[in-house]
Nucleic acid binder design. Structure first.
Lengths: 112, 112
DNA sequence: CCATATACATAATTTCGCGATGTATATAGA
DNA sequence: TCTATATACATCGCGAAATTATGTATATGG
């Protein structure tokens, strides 16, 4: 997923769910561009990672889709389902805990 | 590696190199206990993850080993090589960048 | 006597993202 | 005109990483 970074494994679902919580509905290509913009080009979300993950989240009932044709091109819009909204909250908390633990283990924060 | 958390994938090498930077020399079992203590039991470092990673780091020349028999049990102590010390700095910076990007993507920090 | 702790190790399996590839339209530049 | 790039979707094979399970062995507490 990243330019030179294996670390994002496992965080992609969380990132997608969170972007969709903030943006109501987005299509795949838009998500890749959003990630690029937010990280100032540091992170490139690859299609080979994105689309399978979107399909998986949809199959799990966390995402809903609607397809439109815009300027002669297909767009598949994704948005959070009710379950997706709940799962987003869970995964966000997990990510917070993960960051906190990692900072502890790497001694990046002073002891409490 | 974790109790209920897929997120730590890719961070294990960084965690090990960093613990060894702080503790001079450690043996495998000691590392599992240290991780458990630091995270207050939240993170359980499994042997199936730890030992292959230690062997890999040693094979890459990042770790050096010395084996001792203590109380009739084998202990294999690991310490950072010169290359390991350098790589630890690199990986720590990568982890910092990773955390910063993740916080940006998850909107966990106010915009600058 | 047996579970748990200490201490190492490996094999099979699963999961996840990467890289490559494929289809298709629109546009900018040489 | 041709070609590269951007937009927009999708899938397959591969490799890396951790999990689960299993194995060996000693020491200790109940």
């Amino acid at each position: 997923m990243a330019v030179n970074n294996e670390l994002f494994k496992g965080t992609l679902q969380t990132i997608i769910l969170n972007l969709l919580a903030e943006n109501e509905r987005m299509y795949g290509y838009e998500i890749t561009q959003k990630v690029k913009t937010i990280t100032q080009g540091e992170l490139i979300l690859k299609e080979g990672a994105l689309y399978p993950t979107l399909h998986k989240l949809e199959a799990s009932g966390l995402l809903e889709t609607s397809t439109e044709v815009i300027e002669n091109r297909l767009r598949k819009y994704y948005s959070l389902s009710k379950d997706g909204q709940k799962e987003r909250v869970n995964k966000l908390q997990e990510a917070k805990d993960f960051i906190a633990h990692l900072q502890l283990l790497l001694n990046l924060k002073p002891a409490i």
